[in-house]
Amino acid sequence: MNILHMLFEILIFPGFAFVLFTALFFHWLDRKLIARFQGRIGPPWYQPVADLIKLFSKEDILPVGTNEVFATLLPLVSFAFVMTASFYLPFAVPTTQSFEGDIIVVIFLLSMPSLLYFLAGWITSGVYSILGGNRSLLQYFSYEVLFLLAISGTVITSGSWSLAGIRSAQLTSGSYFLPQLLGFFLTVSGLIGKLKRDPYDIPKAKSEMVAGPLTEFSGKKLGLWQLTNQLQTVVGLSFLVHTYFGGYWQMGTVGGFFTFYLLLILLQCLLSAISAIYARFRIDQLIRLNWYALIPLALIHNLFLVLK
């Protein structure tokens, strides 16, 4: 009985299947929102599912000179990393035990796909893939630092290195969102880099790099890569909810559940709006922006929090 219950929790709710469908739903939401911002109608609700099924049923070809084993393993591994991260970030209902330092684990798990993304570009033999991979690595060194610095603001105020600790600290002190608005936006900026969305979509910029490291992938592998990215989006967003809006936990199970999703949707709106408004950065502009402006800002912000 207990085992069945556990299996259900891991595989269906609030585990694997549930998270997956959330990811697909948010991908649809994203596309729909951007379409609406641009004055279009946008795709129907089942679009991500159809895309996924179609991609999985397509022929899988790789160019000559590509390491087959790696090409198959990379998307799988990066998918696994993000999936694991999703277990540390309970979707609405607390399941896994939180431990001191799990926030570091989540950050690590979330940044691994970027490295694998770079590798994906490196093992395929196309020029665009290699260049795109290079760019993703260059970019990695700016947004990752920013993300870490910005998120540590919440750690400093709460005095805990665990997600549960940060959440419970917010129960007493109120959500960190308003008091740390600056930190929140810096984190969002880092997150956009992680997700490689507009305007940080330099590695896969369509008009220059075709599709970046993924140019030569097709069929199942492409589907898995896209799924990874979609999953990363919701996981990243729920990470934000946990760290900056921890107070929703107070609402009880059902209330908490709905508030959680409401917050996720609002955050997705923010991301989509940013995507629609800004032009893509150039890589040097991005690095300059991050190292000269945003990272010092995050440092000052943290210093301020420590002194307070």
Binding site: F37, G39, A276, A279
Partner: peptide, 16 residues
């Protein structure tokens, strides 16, 4: 031009 610099919204508006 807007599409090429990643500003899809302007692309959509100007074509509209």
């Amino acid at each position: 031009l807007a599409k090429n610099i990643g500003l899809d919204t302007i692309f959509m508006y100007s074509w509209r």
